[in-house]
């Protein structure tokens, strides 16, 4: 009986705190972003059937200092990972004596725009494929190398490098490929399903409360155009599935495995929610 009262008191206090903070709303800033002379599309009309009229980059929701760090490609610590990725690109790995460069040559040419079109349909595996899994597929099938363990520093660096070759290119997923539409449907379903002890859906924060503050974090639309992202929080690179799992962990729900059917469906859907936004990899966020 007393435990319940203690819990009730705690909940009451939390509720009051939550109400006080929840009322705060901040408009995203009115600012433009250009990186190395490449203009970034950070706001654009949403595609048909989208809950918002306008899709907005998470960049717009950050403080001035955070935004400034991303604008300068020298100051952006995420570029250290991109440079590491460039090294890996040239490094021979696996039994077939090849590097990425052996087949793909200069990434600035061969990978230009490529990252902006993922996830794609993998007809062999009969499921969506993202950049990380595409890299693994290439490594295994074409290099005789091992697939990366999820979130291996090299995986993150190489993914950031490949995605970075699409800097500025608007994201777009071709849902007509294979069964991508069905996975989009599944992803949408997951996006709106409340889970976890906190009973939150992705939409609870990134749609219903977009623009509000959760404690001191300014809630964005939860777009994926900047991943892998340099986060001040961990002072390191964060991959997309790492972030999905982190968000889900924070709602106190069981975390799906990286690249699981659940998270791949979510990636398809959430990528669509940012259609038209420029790839910003490596984005800088809090």
């Amino acid at each position: 009986m007393d435990r319940i009262s203690l819990a009730a008191g705690t909940a009451l206090c939390l509720l009051l705190t939550g109400l006080a903070v929840g009322k705060a709303f901040g408009d995203p800033v009115d600012d433009t972003l250009e990186i190395d002379g490449v203009p970034m599309i950070i706001r654009t009309a949403a595609p048909d059937g989208h809950p918002f009229d306008e899709v907005l980059s998470g960049w717009l929701f950050r403080e001035a200092e955070t935004r400034a760090t991303q604008e300068d490609s020298f100051e952006n610590p995420g570029m250290l990972a991109v440079e590491r990725g460039a090294e890996i690109w040239e490094t021979v790995d696996g039994t077939m004596g090849k590097s990425c460069a052996s087949c793909h040559d200069d990434a600035a040419v061969s990978m230009k725009g490529v990252g902006a079109a993922y996830p794609k349909w993998d007809a062999d595996a009969k499921r969506p494929i993202n950049v990380e899994l595409q890299i693994d597929k290439c490594r295994v099938e074409n290099m005789g190398a091992e697939a990366y363990k999820f979130d291996d520093a090299d995986q993150v660096a190489l993914t950031a490098f490949v995605k970075h070759q699409s800097l500025g290119t608007p994201m777009s997923v071709d849902l007509s490929q294979g069964d991508l539409q069905a996975w989009w449907d599944k992803g949408k379903d997951l996006y709106y399903t409340r889970t976890g002890q906190l009973d939150f859906a992705c939409a609870s924060c990134h749609e219903a409360s977009m623009g509000k503050y959760i404690r001191a974090d300014h809630l964005s639309q939860g777009q994926v155009n900047g991943f892998p992202t340099y986060r001040f929080n961990t002072a390191g690179m964060v991959s997309l599935h790492n972030r999905f799992r982190g968000c889900i962990r924070d709602t106190r729900a069981e975390m799906p495995k990286a690249f699981s059917d659940e998270l791949m469906a979510l990636e398809v859907y959430v990528t669509w929610r940012g259609t038209g936004l420029s790839v910003e990899t490596p984005a800088v966020r809090q």
Partner: peptide, 12 residues
């Protein structure tokens, strides 16, 4: 009960 509620609130 009142005391426990207060203790819970103070714990935060």
């Amino acid at each position: 009960r009142v005391l426990m509620l207060a203790a819970g609130a103070a714990a935060i």
